[in-house]
Design a protein around this nucleic acid. Structure first.
Length: 463
RNA sequence: GCUCCCUUCGUCUAGAGGCCCAGGACAUAGCCCUCUCAAGGCUGUAACACGGGUUCGAAUCCCGUAGGGAGCGCCA
């Protein structure tokens, strides 16, 4: 049997890291098993669903590279199908019309809560045959009254629910539109879903869904309820930390593979391996190995992983990402050589591409503004004097490359009987504007002779 | 309140009765390297929620307790 998984977000909010991880697990498992991954948009709540949210979810999935083999399907486009199933169930007796008014049900619920009971529908209309004038009925699923449902969960193991605990849920509203739990059931059935992988907040819905599937005469799929992601403080994910669109991470200069790598390691591991490529993730992933406990989102480890991915990725692959960040800062370059050189020089001193771009502006813009503190510290009378000597040596260089520059500076330092830092720092400030940059030889080499000398001249002229 | 789920270093995790006075990673502290900043290397601090069992032996099995979470909508 071919594995079919699905990611089924509802477009009432954005695609945050929690949803992204669920999607990742679905995608990984399908890829791993050589199966199919379906994307389905659960937009039955017309009040709260927005096209904007749909767009953001689709964009997020695309950025993450979690491509679907089928879909996106939209539940709002399947209403005819749902209606047909409902009328079949009505005919078969596995569903019935309920004429209880909303106010009556609210009152009932309040009484039950007051009595410290679990609020639930008591089945008043189960045996009703005649309609009730003036009330548009809803349709309820006739849940079995006795026995138990066992969810053979792939991450939790068997979980038993007593049917007596389950009430008759509404599958069609009084306006005739189907509800979530019902649509899921029909869709999973129609789309041949074999493995439902979703957040464990759905575990409690599962026995009802299984009962409906059983009533429809189909074998329920396998279920895997994965734990939630918590905020860094161990409480529910909020806007303050992870509950932002995954696209936010693109803006912040993260690589999609790094985010995915971080997310897959939340609740799952493979020996002592921390860094995974996409291919490695697919090869190693198994839904059975996923943990049961919720885990806290740790931005620092994400940062570390992002750097690991930047360092390991081929430099040229980062060029478009770096350029996007440079553009956000108001610069850009199409000099591939320069870009690649900057990436190699900067990737181990930046955690994100955004940071890399910020640290690298001076490579692309000749508008170098000296940091006052750095200038005060290093462009002293002594420093300027050294700068003049450096300028002369560099100007005399036959070859302009890191090794030659390195030799020249080292020789000068030895002659002057000072440490290399004594002359490198003034040069760094003159050329980059700050006291921090990649090694001075590499920096000068990347900048090129003309630009480097011009900047030294500016500093010497005190402008 | 009821039902269901969860519980190893600050955080992510390894661990499926002896290999564990608990291993790795992030973070953190110190040292080394060093032209700055990093990266890297080495070293350190740091955990089996608690209480009972079972067993020659338990982080691992069983039962309780505590704490956390989810669900209980004509929301998804």
């Amino acid at each position: 049997m071919t594995v079919v998984t699905r990611f089924a977000p509802s477009p009432t909010g954005l695609l945050h890291v929690g949803g992204a991880r669920t999607a990742l697990f679905c995608w990984l498992y399908a890829r791993r098993m050589g199966g199919k991954f379906i994307l389905r948009v659960e937009d039955t709540d017309r009040e709260r669903s927005t096209e904007e949210a749909v767009r953001v979810i689709l964009e997020g999935m695309a950025w993450l590279g979690l491509e679907a083999d089928e879909g996106p399907y939209y539940q709002t486009e399947r209403f005819d199908r749902y209606r047909r199933v409902i009328s079949e169930m009505l005919k078969a007796g596995s569903a019935y019309r309920c004429y209880c008014a909303k106010e009556e049900l609210d009152a009932l619920r309040e009484q039950q809560i007051a009595r410290k009971e679990k609020p639930r529908y008591t089945g008043i209309c189960r045996e009703r045959t005649a309609p009730r004038p003036g009330v548009e009925p809803v349709v309820r699923f006739r849940n079995p009254l006795s026995g138990a449902v066992v969810v053979e969960d792939l991450v939790h193991g068997p979980v038993t629910f007593q049917n007596a605990e389950l009430d008759d849920l509404i599958i069609a509203r009084s306006d005739g539109t189907p509800t979530y739990n019902f649509c899921v059931v029909v869709d999973d059935m129609d789309m041949g879903v074999t493995h439902v992988i979703r957040g464990d907040d759905h575990l409690n819905n599962t026995p009802r869904q299984m009962n409906m599937l059983l009533a429809l005469g189909v074998t329920p799929p396998a279920y895997a309820h994965v734990p939630m992601i918590l905020g860094p403080d161990g409480t529910k994910l909020s806007k303050r930390h992870g509950a932002v669109s995954v696209l936010q991470y693109e803006q912040e200069g993260y690589l999609p593979d790094a985010l995915l790598n971080y997310l897959v390691r939340l609740g799952w591991s493979h020996g002592d391996q921390e860094v995974f490529t996409r291919e490695e993730m697919i090869a190693a992933f198994d839904i059975h190995d996923v943990n049961k406990a919720a885990s806290a989102f740790n931005p620092e480890k994400l940062l570390w992983l992002n750097q690991q991915h930047m360092v390991r990725s081929p430099p040229t692959a980062l060029i478009p990402h770096l350029r996007a960040q440079l553009r956000r800062l108001g610069t850009d370059s199409d000099d591939e050589q320069l870009l690649e050189g900057v990436i190699v020089a900067q990737r181990e001193r930046a955690k994100t591409l955004k940071e890399m771009a910020e640290n690298s502006r001076f490579f692309f813009s000749d508008d170098v503004r000296l940091d006052p503190k750095a200038a005060a510290k290093h462009l002293t009378a002594d420093g300027i004097a050294g700068l003049g000597k450096v300028r002369a040596r560099l100007a005399a260089l036959k070859e302009w490359n890191a090794a030659a520059i390195h030799d020249a500076l080292n020789t000068l330092a030895t002659e002057l009987q000072v440490g290399l830092g004594k002359i490198a720092q003034p040069v760094r400030v003159a050329v980059t504007g700050t006291a921090v940059s990649p090694p001075i030889d590499a920096t000068l080499a990347l900048l090129g002779r003309e630009r480097a000398l011009a900047r030294l001249d500016s500093a010497l002229a005190g402008t």
